[in-house]
Design a protein around this nucleic acid. Sequence first.
DNA 1: CGCTTTTGACCTGCGC
DNA 2: GCGCAGGTCAAAAGCG
Length: 308
Amino acid sequence: MSDNNPFYHDYLGTGGINNAFSNFFGDQNPSIYDQIIPPNTQTPHQDFDPSSYMSTLTECLHGSMDYNSLSNVLGMSCSSSEVVCPPLDQESSRKNTAEIPLTPNSLVSSSSSEAGGEEDSSKSKKDLQAKDQCEDGDDKSKKVSKAKKKGEKKQKEPRFAFMTKSEIDNLEDGYRWRKYGQKAVKNSPFPRSYYRCTSQKCSVKKRVERSYEDPSVVITTYEGQHNHHCPATLRGNAAAAMLSPSFLSSSQLIPQDVLFAQMLTTPTNQNQLPINYSVYNYQQQPQLGPEYGLFQDMVASLIHKREP
DNA sequence: CGCTTTTGACCTGCGC
DNA sequence: GCGCAGGTCAAAAGCG
């Protein structure tokens, strides 16, 4: 399944996301910084409307807009991919699922217990487990469950994956989360934590894991869209800033410990793996300090990448 | 006391 | 069919 995922192939490549990450940000291609984030890109592009960008992203993150629209705004198929992504290499498609902490499933919904039927899936699973324990007709319930899940499987929740350089694992994003699981990731000393939005009727989840190649990098994957307002708009990190409506509308600040953030958008199309993706990088400019807004930088990078 | 975190068990999908 | 890995559950423990 992952063989159809261009993100998986192009971006993760043979070395997984961490390797790709270091490819982008490491020594192997230092010029990428200049390509993605121009040092002095502070002037908006003529054709770019920041307010439109802000509202679109905000709407999308809050569930009032589909991710295709967001992808359009973000320029999913723009030249950024050409700049950022390594060329498609068949060799890179060789099995590497087990080598990366951020698996295809991390960015691409494919497991049965997630997404679409999220709200019901856990409940049905609970019920199923209870039935399995109490009744001997487990085959029956399993079949029902499977059939149910097959139907639900078609629905996929969009995901955002942020890679943020931070000492803090669980980046504050203004929402309240309850941790419901933690799993060791193969070939990684760092576990992956699973969080669920504590708001009732909100099925948004997020995964937090640390890159094993660069422990300073935190990979946060959001799944789903909040159906409620952000309970608290907090300063604290790039993800929070990006996900915070107030940030998007007022260019809040970012902390110093966040050196850069990378935003990956992976729109899903039912059971299909994402066709397009986009990579947005942020690197704090030391000479400017934290007072320099993340959004401006994102916009700047976006503008830059969109320029012919 | 209520909420959150921890953690082992369990379930599911996928590749072989 | 089997094994592996990711994802989830839920009881117990922790915490304010």
